[in-house]
Simulated assay, not measured.
Amino acid sequence: MTNLDLFPPEPPPATGPLEHLLKVSRIYLEPDIERFTRGRDILARFPGAERVPVRSHWNIPGLFGNEGNAEAWNRIKGSTLVLGVKKSMGFEANGRSADFLPPSTANGCVMSCAYCYVPRHKGYANPVTVFVNIEQVLAAIRRHAGRLGPKTEPNTVDPRYWVYDIGCNSDCSADAALSDNVKDLVRLFTVLPNAMGSFATKLVNRELLSYAPRGKTRIRFSLMPPAKAKLLDVRTSPISERIAAIDDFVAAGYEVHLNFSPVVITEGWQAEYDALFQQLDDTMGDRAKEQLAAEIIFLTHNERLHEVNLRWHPKAEELLWRPELQETKVSQGGGVNVRYRTGYKGRLVEEFQELLARRMPYCRVRYAF
């Protein structure tokens, strides 16, 4: 398959929350996808899309791992969907955003945030893969939560429930516009007495307001100063729209937290975040403020992703790649990551929390690093 083959046919008009982000004209699908109800449902949503059989969603010739697709990054994301079957039903301990990472029901994203870590693991064009065997994932979570029993010792994740991050490899707000997988997960946690779901999002999908989560799903709206978001949060909902949605999601029964991530250091960052905190304080109602908590995550970048970004979004790298402020760290997987220098980062984290406490003293910080 050549790079020209990667460009799908012209897509049909689309509707819904992904109207301007994803107009599916090509679907790569693993064998036997249509034997799953969810697979048939998704294919029925896009009857005019070209169907391309593949052996594995992880290994699509010409797409997976092809850094040469950098120039076509957003075109591929905006027209391509992959359907697969989730093979592994393992759970990973987390301890920060959640207690556990369950088997994912999707991988990849319609959005193109310049700092996203997922493309490093799944082919740099990184279109969305939806896993169609949702019943197996739901059953695995039920069994796992059942074995855990009650949460008897509160921790920084949550004082009452075991928390499962259901969106660590994708954005569930976007996934919910493609299938009912997210709805099924939200409904599952309403009947698990000892567990709740959680996911971070940069997309406002108001269809989720009808899911009736009953306080058992936590949405973490990811936020950064609007000027930075316009450059770095490519193809996402505007920051003002995310902030405006907070009260509505609280009213619909979600626990809503904030995810200040990634914090990118530039000249004048303190004033930018002070204005963001003021905007939040002015916009949120009392009910949202009473239940509010936040995560603070400073930027970690990657050498290979930096090289790819230089080909499709070099302006972003002027903010993300700052060798004079950063140091390298080799990850467990052998990747060369960069983060703000030890000592310097500690001072930044402290200063950020002081700014937040001054403007939003009611906002509890669950963790910061």
Score class of each variant (00 low, 15 high):
Q353L: 09
E318L: 12
A70Y: 02
R26M: 02
D158T: 07
R187S: 11
E272I: 00
H306N: 14
E324H: 15
A244C: 09
V130E: 09
A114N: 06
H57G: 00
V24Q: 03
I265G: 02
P154L: 10
E19Q: 11
A114V: 08
F298K: 15
A177L: 06
L223D: 02
R35A: 08
T129S: 12
S25Q: 01
G62I: 01
L203E: 01
Y211Q: 00
A49P: 04
N205E: 09
P13E: 14
N309A: 10
A106L: 01
Y211H: 00
R45A: 05
L101W: 06
R358D: 08
S237C: 11
P159D: 14
M89A: 13
E303F: 10
Q279W: 01
G108P: 00
C109F: 01
L276M: 07
R96M: 08
I297E: 09
Q326A: 05
A227R: 12
G48P: 00
Q278F: 06
I60F: 09
A200W: 05
L356I: 02
K122S: 15
G39T: 04
P8L: 13
L276H: 04
D247G: 01
V263A: 09
N59P: 01
R143I: 07
D281W: 05
A288K: 02
Y28T: 01
A125K: 14
L310C: 13
P159W: 06
A14P: 03
Y367H: 11
F249H: 03
I239V: 12
P154D: 10
F100W: 13
P225H: 10
I166T: 11
I27D: 02
L355R: 07
R311W: 03
L348W: 05
E30C: 04
D282G: 03
S56R: 09
N126C: 11
V349C: 05
K183F: 11
V234T: 09
L43N: 00
Q270R: 14
P61D: 05
G48Y: 14
D41V: 03
R120L: 11
D171S: 05
